[in-house]
Design a protein around this nucleic acid. Structure first.
Length: 271
DNA sequence: AATCGCGCCTGACGGC
DNA sequence: TGCCGTCAGGCGCGAT
């Protein structure tokens, strides 16, 4: 499930290969994603050159002279760039053919992803404008989370997964960052001290940076733009490790449900 | 305003 | 073998 590090990995891999390239044509086979792909997408993209690829939260933004493509990979979205033609599979929903002979293919078995068109400022798009600060920017700091959390009774894990509070953190990295910060995931957000939020922010940044450096986390669904799986999975401390021994203290990692999400933590390390 | 739970969607997997 | 239920989960939305 692509979270910020996976989307960033895709962006970095894709940028040198398609920035500056001109789009020849676009084939939309399945318009019914999370939201319908705009019927004009093929028309507006034809002949345009990609000026830049940016990332905001978990969204990819393709800058073009006449507007912007906003893409979200949802749970199972993949992007692959390959040379020449390959017959599309059942879940290969969109092809973007470039004049240099490459094809960017969007594949998404669960179709929770989305591809939208924004003729104006994409950062002002309703889906993006409410996103919280980028976790790796200076806008995310301990005092910010502390302030936003006052009076909040939701668990700290749900709190940091709220994209309006801070963007880009999904279930995997929420679990990992809370482990790194030694904070129990179910602690009410409003009950944590400023000092503990400072530790948490440091842990979030460190966890995300390491994941980006490693090229994202391998899951069933994630592949980067070349189809390569990430290899951060080897380093996951708690996610997916229910009933296994904590790498730090040996206690049994617990798996619970919190806010309808699988939650993993070490009952001895995290308080 | 904050919180809760639903629904979208498919594939993997376990049980019978 | 095959069928069925459950789980995985990002995120907007409606209800409370």
């Amino acid at each position: 499930m692509p979270e910020l590090p996976e989307v960033e990995t895709i962006r970095c891999g894709l940028a040198p290969l398609i920035v500056g390239q001109q789009i020849e044509r676009v084939v939309v086979r399945t318009p019914s994603l999370r939201w319908p792909i705009p019927s004009k997408l093929s028309r507006v993209l034809r002949g345009q050159a990609v000026l830049a690829i940016e990332r905001r939260a978990k969204y990819l933004v393709f800058r073009l002279p006449n507007g912007n493509v906003i893409m979200h990979l949802g749970m199972s979205g993949q992007l692959r760039l390959r040379r020449g033609y390959e017959p599309p599979g059942r879940h290969d929903h969109v092809d973007i053919f470039f004049k240099n002979g490459n094809c960017l293919r969007f594949r998404d078995p669960r179709r929770f992803g989305s591809i939208l068109w924004s003729p104006t400022d994409p950062l002002a798009h309703p889906l993006i404008v409410k996103s919280g600060p980028e976790p790796l920017s200076t806008a995310l700091h301990g005092l910010y989370l502390y302030g936003r959390s006052r009076g909040r009774r939701v668990s700290v894990k749900q709190f940091i997964m709220d994209q309006r509070v801070v963007s880009g953190i999904g279930n995997i990295y929420a679990n990992e960052a809370l482990f790194a910060a030694r904070i129990h995931p179910v602690t009410p957000a409003g009950r944590l001290s400023l000092r503990r939020y400072q530790h948490l922010v440091a842990a979030i940044k460190k966890t995300l940076r390491k994941a980006i450096a490693a090229g994202g986390t391998t899951t069933r669904d994630f592949h980067d733009e070349s189809g390569q799986a990430g290899y951060f999975q080897l380093k996951l401390q708690v996610y997916g490790r229910g009933n296994k021994p904590c790498f730090v203290c040996g206690a049994t990692v617990r798996q619970i449900r919190n806010g309808q999400r699988s939650t993993f933590y070490c009952p001895r390390c995290q308080r």
